[in-house]
């Protein structure tokens, strides 16, 4: 464990908690893409199948449980509890264009052709594009609530910090995982436009508005 990875995990956990609280407190999921949350639930499910078979540490196991539980709770709130506030008309990104290519790629490019490893690889590839429906929705509605932009910022920063974690691990542990690194780079690049708007607007107290 290193500081970048720890801060990355904290940032990721914060994003998940911010979203949960935003929906629960405001009793509304307006502006939130249910499709992205569904994709995140798939990402965690396919990545943590070894939750009960491969114990790494208490920290690792407890974080995995929190991630899986909170992602399902978020999907449940969007599609069930507060579905009346779900803005389906603006959440129209075709997720099959994300799931099918990443699934095919996980069969072609992986570390080992075994079910668990292919599912882990699929979850890594899917995570790198899972935020697209949410970013697409923000661009369609032309704006995002400030709390939603904080959620997106924390979520984007988590994988950016992981990039530094991989530099650290390459330098000091001679460890590197090219699949995770390339997918992490793609994931971070997708946030660049949002990072620019967040830093130039939201941090100056303005509302996040995208040129529609």
């Amino acid at each position: 464990m290193n500081i970048f990875r720890f801060l990355g995990d904290i940032s990721h956990l914060s994003a998940i908690i911010i979203l949960l609280l935003k929906i629960w407190k405001s009793r509304s999921c307006a502006g939130i893409s249910g499709k992205s949350q569904l994709l995140f639930a798939i990402v965690f499910t396919t990545r943590y199948l070894d939750l009960f078979t491969n114990f790494i540490s208490f920290y690792n196991t407890s974080m995995k449980v929190v991630y899986v539980a909170s992602s399902y709770a978020t999907v449940w709130m969007i599609y069930s509890k507060f579905k009346a506030t779900y803005d389906g008309n603006h959440d129209t990104f075709r997720v099959e264009f994300l799931i099918v290519p990443t699934a095919i790629l996980s069969f072609l490019v992986n570390h080992d052709f075994t079910p668990l490893e292919i599912l882990w690889t699929f979850s890594i590839y899917l995570e790198s594009v899972a935020i697209l429906p949410q970013l697409f929705m923000v661009s369609k509605t032309g704006e995002a609530e400030t709390i939603t932009s904080h959620y997106l910022f924390a979520l984007g920063i988590y994988r950016t910090l992981y990039l530094f974690n991989w530099i650290w691990r390459y330098q000091f542990e001679e460890f590197f995982d090219l699949i995770a690194i390339v997918a992490g780079l793609v994931q971070t690049v997708l946030y660049c436009d949002f990072f620019y708007l967040y830093i130039t607007k939201v941090l100056k107290g303005k509302k996040l508005s995208l040129p529609a």
Binding site: D9, H12, R47, N110, N165, F175
Partner: peptide
């Protein structure tokens, strides 16, 4: 190089 199955990151 990462070995298959030993993914210790979240």
């Amino acid at each position: 190089e990462a070995l298959p199955g030993d993914h210790d990151e979240l």
